[in-house]
Each structure stands twice: as structure tokens, then as C-alpha cells.
Nucleic acid binder design. Structure first.
Lengths: 146, 146
DNA sequence: TTTAGTGCAAAAATTTTGCACATAG
DNA sequence: CTATGTGCAAAATTTTTGCACTAAA
């Protein structure tokens, strides 16, 4: 997997640094979305000297390069998560445990068509994010969420 | 229209204050989404003494009460706009001139069904926001946007 | 008169920048 | 070597809070 990351980074003309790889590992090993600070805390277990700005910079670059995904959370905090196909932006996020699940039903083509036909506009990007409670959290507590 | 606002506020158990009404007027008279600070600047033309915190507090309350809508902008700034049906969250927003247009093609029922059936989860809220360039902006500059 | 709203100042929280040093290519 | 990455400290930005005072119901 490290190998894969290396080639991905190279394609983006990002240098392969230990910390950059570690950030990817952290995200990859989490099934939930993390804030920059949380990524940083985890990173510090490996690298006692790592700055929060480095984490911010890296997360942003990686998201720009579509290696990871940004999550648009109702609480407006910044979150990122690793997903196999980060160019696919249809997610179901659990407000309680933070799990992210893909929604494969994609209506984007349809949408794009309608924006073009009806509004005469052009789509640059879109967010389809469904916020809710996942299976587990529904069972656990019926849905108490922050 | 002031009358309408009054009854809306009463329903939400929000007191009808001149500044609250003025905030609604500001948003109503704009066809684009505004940041809290922008609302505040406009407000100060009428009320020389109005605090930015007041604007923040009011916008948040009004959004909570579904009187106005929050915009989820890629630049992560907070924006609000007035829309006739703020419980309808399918929008096309122009990244250039900030116009908001409704998207009436609603696939939400379908989505909700699938989240229930396939993920066994529950939908709490959703965002469908299409970011792009509107008709006018496309004509104007072919799409230079921040 | 009781509850909610507001101004101000100040704080909090989050994110970004500048710059000297370090490291990957 | 040369361009990029990083740590640190510091700043910038945005949003929130506390509290005394005011105004709506």
C-alpha cells in the first residue's frame, strides 16, 4: 500500500515524505472522518515533532489531488477521510459515529443535464451528502447525536 | 411583507425586533448569498449601532427556524440567503456572482429509500448543492471564479 | 415584569503565513 | 544542487461568549 501511495504522490508531483505517507496511513486506517487536529494527534504518536500546519497543508494538497475526500459537516468543522474513489462525492455520513458510506446511486449526470438545459449554467462541482445515523448507531441509541 | 415576517417570527417564538426585521429585509432584497459580515455592513446603513454578534446570532436562529437558508460554500465561509422555501435544500449556487437558483428535480425520496434499504440507516439531513457558473457569468467571462 | 435581544469588549477556535532549516528528487 | 516540505511562532480570520443594559410581550 505504501507503494501505491508513492506512485499516487508522484503523479501529483508531491514529494514522498515520511509524514505525508503517515498522514495517508492514518486516514486509511480509520473508517471515520477525522479533523486535522485528530490526524495530527495520531501522527504525533509516530513523530513527536510534527506541526499542525503541516497536517493542514498536507490534507489540503491531498484533497486537491483527489487522494482523500473532504467532508462537509453541518457543524462546519473541517473533516477528511480516505476513500477508494475520492472523485466520487456522494456520501452518507453518520453524525454520531462518523462512518462514511458511499452512495452509488448517482444522479449527477441527470443534474448536470438539467442545469445546462434549464438554467443555462455550468456545473463546476457538487456536493451530495446525506447526513444521518448509520445502522449501528440506530441500534445503539436510537439516534442521539451531537 | 413586514407583516409576514412578524407572523413567521412569532411562530418561532422569536421576538419581533427592528433589527431582526431589518436582517430579513437585507437578505430578502439580495438575490445572492451574503456572509454575516456583509449583512452587518448593510445593516449599519440603517442602524449605526449594531453589533456583528447580533447578526451572527440572528442569522443562526433564523436558519434554525428555516426562515433563511445556509449555503455550504467550497471556500468554507458562512453564507446565508433568503429563499421562499428554505426547507428545500437543492440549490445551484454560482461561484462567481453568488446567485442561488433552486433545483426542483428532487431525488431525495429515492435517496432516502435507498439509505434505508441498502444501508439500514436513517437520513437526518442532506445537502445537494451544485456549484457552478450561472448563465450570466458564463456569458460575461467564460468562468473566472475565485 | 419577565423573558428575550443587543452592544461592546474580549475570548475562543480554527486555519494560515513567514521564514529558517531540512530533506527528497 | 534545487525545489519542496516542515517546525515553530506568530498572525489572521471567523465565530462565540459574558455581561450589563434595553426593549418586546
Amino acid at each position: 500500500m505504501l507503494r501505491d501511495f508513492q506512485s499516487v504522490l508522484k503523479k501529483l508531483h508531491l514529494k514522498v515524505t515520511p509524514k505525508r505517507l503517515a498522514i495517508l496511513e492514518v486516514l486509511k486506517n480509520e473508517s471515520v472522518y477525522l479533523s486535522p487536529e485528530e490526524v495530527w494527534r495520531k501522527l504525533r504518536k509516530q513523530f513527536s515533532q510534527v506541526g499542525l500546519p503541516t497536517v493542514y497543508r498536507n490534507l489540503e494538497e491531498l484533497a486537491q489531488g483527489n487522494v482523500i475526500s473532504k467532508v462537509t459537516h453541518p457543524n462546519r468543522q473541517l473533516y477528511y477521510y480516505f476513500c477508494l474513489n475520492p472523485s466520487h462525492h456522494h456520501h452518507f455520513i453518520c453524525l454520531s459515529c462518523r462512518t462514511v458510506e458511499d452512495i452509488d446511486f448517482c444522479m449527477f449526470r441527470e443534474l448536470e443535464k438539467r442545469v445546462k438545459q434549464e438554467l443555462k449554467g455550468r456545473v463546476v462541482s457538487h456536493i451530495l451528502q446525506v447526513n444521518g445515523l448509520c445502522k449501528k448507531c440506530l441500534k445503539k441509541d436510537g439516534g442521539s447525536h451531537a
